[in-house]
Amino acid sequence: MVRLPLTVAEVERGRRLGALLRRARRERSILETALDARVSPETLRKIESGRVATPAFSTIAAIADVLGLSLDAVWAEINQPELGVEPISSGRIARERLAA
């Protein structure tokens, strides 16, 4: 199976996910968190560093559960638009087509 390259948005979401998990983990060790979530410490380390930008849903769910994060909160956090960048919406695309 050939895996397509990640988009810039996917890479950025991966970085946000890693930062969120690091903040939520606080003083708790990677080893303790990973073992409680039943993932390898290396997997958690890669997710937190952004090296795995699109981890499996079950992996995110297990880690979020151990850290007391709701999946809704995780999703909302990692999908925040960049400051100063207008999100692409069907309304904006329609306006651009009309202006052309």
Rank of each mutant, 00 (worst) to 15 (best):
G14K: 01
A94Q: 13
R16T: 12
V11A: 13
W75K: 07
I88L: 12
D65K: 11
S90F: 10
V52M: 11
L17A: 13
L69H: 03
L21W: 03
A19E: 15
E48F: 13
P41E: 14
E96I: 09
D36V: 00
V66K: 04
V11T: 15
A37P: 06
G84H: 02
S89P: 04
L44V: 10
E48I: 14
L69T: 03
G68C: 03
G68E: 00
L71Q: 06
R23N: 15
S49K: 13
R13D: 04
I30P: 00
L31F: 11
R95K: 14
R26T: 09
E96N: 08
R97V: 14
E48S: 15
L98S: 11
S90M: 10
L31S: 11
G84I: 02
M1T: 07
T33W: 02
R51Q: 15
A73T: 13
I78L: 13
T7V: 01
T59E: 03
L17F: 09
L67V: 08
N79C: 10
D65R: 12
L98N: 06
V52G: 00
G84E: 05
R3G: 01
S49R: 15
L44N: 01
V8K: 10
I47D: 04
A37C: 09
V8E: 14
I47H: 04
A34N: 09
S70F: 01
A94S: 13
E48K: 14
A64H: 02
L6A: 13
R97G: 00
L17M: 13
G84D: 03
Q80S: 06
R23L: 14
V52S: 14
T54L: 09
R3Q: 10
R38P: 00
D65Y: 02
I88D: 06
